[in-house]
Design a protein around this nucleic acid. Structure first.
Lengths: 248, 248
DNA sequence: CGTTACGTTGAAAGGGTTCAATCCCTGTGG
DNA sequence: CCACAGGGATTGAACCCTTTCAACGTAACG
């Protein structure tokens, strides 16, 4: 892992993901200062671990290519999928308050990341208000992602969960400027099941049903959305529910 | 709500919650500068709304007394409980990236808050590294709370969810220095059910069972834990599960 | 070409939801 | 002080969906 592999050495100013990442909103000169902090590491192979639960927190990581699965490791051996990180996403901020990583990140494919030592980042962000704001913004995005996750899990029916999940995947693609109707998704059904609080069998069944009805096609690692409107309807189906005032 | 109610005007240095709140780690002189930003508002009555989804984001709030329920309001009328905030907790940071509140906060009891205009806070935190770190830390805590919420929802059985939830409530009490075996909790069963992705009926049944077995007593708005060890065991019962390597 | 892990499909079982009726607590007004 | 409403909590029975367990199919990899 420390052998001299030729690195993909694009700097932040030239990086196609800069609008999704820390440089967002920064002046060119400011980006250069940020760029100076970044350590670009050799590519990780599928299954490689970026950081492991319990390791000291020293840096955050920007995904440049590939993708990562993040999960918790309980002493008992049970794993819980927390999230997926794609190019442009920032990994590792969840360790900020504990000084120790609380989750483990595994490469889903061959992946590259930019490593940014957190101390340096913190110091620089005190000098660059925009960067500081961006750091907060990234934390906030993490928060809303986690809230989305809770939203998936709170849905009662497996169909709703999956419909919502697929639409969310699609949105993420769109936000990155990729095709959001048909794209590659390096997730096992087992991962999806774990993430959505279902079993692989149920995922398989629901997906089969979606396919029958011409909603979506998810074969191997490729996903195609055929009928977004109906998928939307499914995802927001039971939207009457409690209604009453929660106040009290 | 704007009548001249006598305010509880303790400053941050004298506040019993300062170790849970923004002042954590700050010098006395720094706390004074923070204190100058704080607007102390009249108490809110049970059911009053602190902020509403869609309102522009201008300030964060520190809960001083009472408590708040936070939920999303879907257009369809469905409400989803996102979280509970007790004294020492910070409300409103979730709006940071959108400049608009994405949730609604309702007082569970008569409650007081400290309002801190975010612009001022952001500016000051650029000058006080410790404050900036504390702001990030608070965001990080929000994140781990939301992750806890997802953890509740991911548990398969209603018993596990409730056991875990009760233990979590107890931990929060302990962190505040209150009695964590027997305490008041201003939540309706309906709220709990909403939060845990269950129905009030199921909550009622499980609580009845817990009571029968002498685990916990949750009558009206008072909760007593009688047998923490067994509750612990219940919460972590099915801790074998998937096991296999998620990597791949 | 075999092995391994993932995916699918089936039938059975269990747990939570649903719906409805009843109880209980709280606050109100007589 | 008591009666009465109203909302929430409880309890019961039936149903439905997901899980479970098991067997089979299929894709990837050496």
């Amino acid at each position: 892992m420390t052998q001299p592999i030729p690195l993909f050495n694009a700097n932040c100013n030239e990086c196609g993901l800069k609008k999704l990442c820390f440089p967002l909103g920064l002046e060119k000169s400011e980006v250069l200062r940020l760029d100076a902090l970044v350590k670009r590491k050799p590519a990780l192979q599928k299954g490689d671990i970026l950081f492991r639960s319990g390791q000291p927190f020293q840096a955050v990581y920007a995904v440049k290519a590939g993708g990562f699965k993040v999960f918790t490791q309980h002493a008992s051996g049970e794993d819980k999928l927390i999230g997926f990180y794609l190019p442009g996403d920032i990994l590792g901020v969840d360790a900020l308050s504990t000084d120790e990583h609380v989750s483990t990140a595994v490469a889903m494919d061959t992946s590259t990341v930019c490593e940014i030592p957190f101390k340096d980042l913190e110091q620089l962000s005190l000098q660059l208000p925009t960067l500081n704001r961006q750091l907060l913004s990234i934390m906030s995005k993490e928060l809303s992602d986690e809230r989305m996750h809770a939203e998936f899990l709170a849905r009662k029916s497996a169909e709703e969960r999956l419909a919502l999940f697929i639409l969310w995947l699609s949105q993420r693609q769109a936000r990155r400027g990729f095709n959001d109707e048909s794209f590659r998704i390096g997730l096992l059904h087992r991962d999806v099941a774990l993430y959505l609080g279902l079993t692989p069998e149920t995922v398989s069944r629901v997906l089969a049903k979606f396919s029958e009805e011409g909603l979506v096609e998810w074969r191997q690692k490729h996903l195609t959305i055929h009928h977004r409107a109906r998928l939307d309807a499914l995802a927001n189906h039971q939207e009457e529910g409690v209604c009453g005032r929660i106040a009290g």
